[in-house]
Every structure is written in structure tokens, then in C-alpha cells.
Amino acid sequence: MTELVGLIVAKYNFWLYIILMMIGLYAMIAKNNLMKKLVGMNIFQTAIILFYVSIGYKHGATLPIIQGDHGGHGTHGAVIHAAEYINPLPHVLMLTAIVVSVATFGVAMALCVRVYRRYQTLEEDELRIRLSEK
């Protein structure tokens, strides 16, 4: 039992990311307003990005920026040890994901504005009623 509690406490950030992800999923499924659904989608996306960035973290490592001499000229260049730096690969991948998420958000907002102009509502149940009237 104590080992289980120790495991949960040691990996607390992963549990909190899962909670965040489930908040986003709940908002996408259960909320009635289209904008709330979009905010839920963005929360879900940022939770996944957070998970990926936290994978690249190392204890006692520094930022992925080369310190001191760049080692380009001659033999006196500093030797680069990859183990001393935080892994930048997840960062680069998630940078793309952030840009994609804001593009998705913008297109979805434009669609929301069009839906509102046509049906004068953004609530999902009212939209269903208006659609079934036609």
C-alpha cells in the first residue's frame, strides 16, 4: 500500500496531466455551448503538449542552448555532452502542435460566427431544434 502511494506521489505530474486531459474531454462531450467545446478542445491539446514536454526533462540538466565556445574553429572548441542538456526534440515537435492548435481554433471560431449568423444561437440543443424544423 505504501509503495503504491509512493508511486502516485512520485509521478504526481502525470496524474495531474491526466486530470487536465479529462477536464478537456468532459467539456468537449458534455458542454452545450459550441465555444465551451472549443475551449475544452484546447485544454485537451495543451494537456497532451504538457505531457510530451515533460518527457524531455532531465534532472540537473540545463537548457538546450550551447554554452561558451561553439567549437567551430580549430581544436580548442568545447566538447558537447548531450546528457547535460534537456532533450529538445519534444519541444520542437510540440512547437508545431501549438501552431496547428491556434490555426484550428481560428477556423473553428470563424465557423461559430457563421453558425450564429444563420441560426442566432450557439447552443447545441437549440441548433438541433432549428435544424429539425427545416
Binding site: 503538449i49 514536454v53 524531455g56 526533462y57 540538466a61 537548457l63 534537456i86 519541444h91 512547437l95 501552431v99
Partner: peptide
């Protein structure tokens, strides 16, 4: 805080 400065300023 996690050291992902490029992701931080993009966000």
C-alpha cells in the same frame, strides 16, 4: 520552469 523556453514564448 521545465526548460522549454521556445515552447514557452510561443505559447
Amino acid at each position: 520552469v521545465m526548460g522549454a523556453v521556445d515552447v514557452a514564448f510561443t505559447e
